[in-house]
Write a protein that binds this DNA or RNA. Structure first.
Lengths: 205, 205
DNA sequence: TGTACATCAGTGAACGCGCGTTCACTGATGTAC
DNA sequence: TGTACATCAGTGAACGCGCGTTCACTGATGTAC
């Protein structure tokens, strides 16, 4: 699309895309500003027309990630309505799907070491994403008798942790780790057992 | 103990300790060979008397971590015997305790990017550690009627993932993330709900 | 006990490298008249 | 339509830096006689 030449046309986004590719390939450490510039066909110095520096570029990648992530979670939640259970399970699946489909974003968001409080904008996006899962958990907890109902934020945290653990341990081509099961199955069955433990689905499957 | 002077006395271990401290403070990226040498009071070149290079030093730290980890898990498992349930829960708690007590080791093992297949020795240690949790899961699964018994390796993977997720998301002073609950409580309750889901503990707590 | 000598842990200077960042510049683009 | 000019995206050379690694060396330690 860009007219190729002295002026790039859409360098800002091209740099973000390059960063995402590099992060996907080599992790947050392997990414360098110079290499991203090179991959976008541009001098390292050109990056400074669009970003304050290396960190700022990663932060932009993370922000775009949070944006997609929040949308995806939101969409999954709505697609499961009006069933609280279906909505909840859908957000769990969406989490994993996002991690698989956007590994660069996922790493930029959760493993690059950039703080979510770096900018108010980033913090807001992150909160929005998290709140979808919490709302789903909250809806669902209405089906549990109040006296044995755990706080919704707690079991939202459980699911978040389980999902993140599955991603980190089994959904990456981790060096030398053999995944015993497909991550999707692992997460699905894990959430299933967990919800049964809460009395939200039938004891016998 | 060491006589301090031209000869260090126990430089090899001092370097590993320095590496662990640096990793704890700044993550696997922040660690540099030069800085570790400096912290041990020695020239960077001296490192090469004891290690092949930077990677080799991290690998040694990870190996020592796996050794402690396997011991700790083993001990927890045995301390819970003869109750399969107690043994299982103890290993879960031991996982988290290890991550908290030995953050440098934990990061070297799981977040430094070094492959577990780097050396046969490292692979063996890692397998040993994992096998403790699998054995505990296997013992426990004997209490589930065979026809609705999930593979032990599966629910061992669930617990591993949940534990790892709790560590990564809530037991680190993650930049800007507020932990809603103490990680210990989060893991304990999470495992509790999960085991209830498997029918291994009473539906009502 | 004392001396000669081998061993080897650590030194310090040097290297090449790629990094992030800066700077004055240049040349393409778009707009005013 | 054509020319003059302002704008600004990207250049390319340069910087200082700390890195991992190498090398010939030195000086402490331990052992043989």
């Amino acid at each position: 699309m860009a007219k190729r030449g002295y002026h790039h046309g859409n360098l800002r986004q091209a740099l973000v895309d390059a960063a995402l590719e590099l992060i996907t390939e080599k992790g947050p450490t392997g990414f360098t500003l110079s290499e991203a510039a090179k991959q976008a066909g541009v001098t390292p110095a050109a990056v400074y027309r669009h970003f304050e520096g290396r960190e700022d570029l990663i932060a932009e990648a993370a922000m775009q990630g949070y944006e997609i992530f929040a949308d995806v979670m939101q969409y999954a939640y709505e697609s499961g309505q009006p069933s609280a259970l279906a909505a909840f399970e859908a957000t769990g699946r969406a989490y994993l799907a996002f991690a698989r489909k956007h590994p660069g974003h996922y790493i930029a968001m959760f493993e690059s070491g950039i703080s979510v409080n770096r900018t108010p904008e980033l913090a807001a996006l992150s909160t929005r994403a998290r709140s979808v899962l919490e709302r789903a958990a909250n809806d669902l907890s209405q089906h549990i008798p109040p006296e044995k109902r755990p706080p919704a934020s707690m079991f939202s945290a459980h699911i978040w942790a389980l999902s993140h653990g599955v991603v980190e341990l089994f959904a990456r081509n981790s060096p030398g780790t053999t995944a015993p099961f497909p991550p999707e199955e692992l997460l699905e069955t894990g959430i299933g057992v967990y919800l049964r433990g809460l009395g939200l689905i039938e004891p016998d499957q």
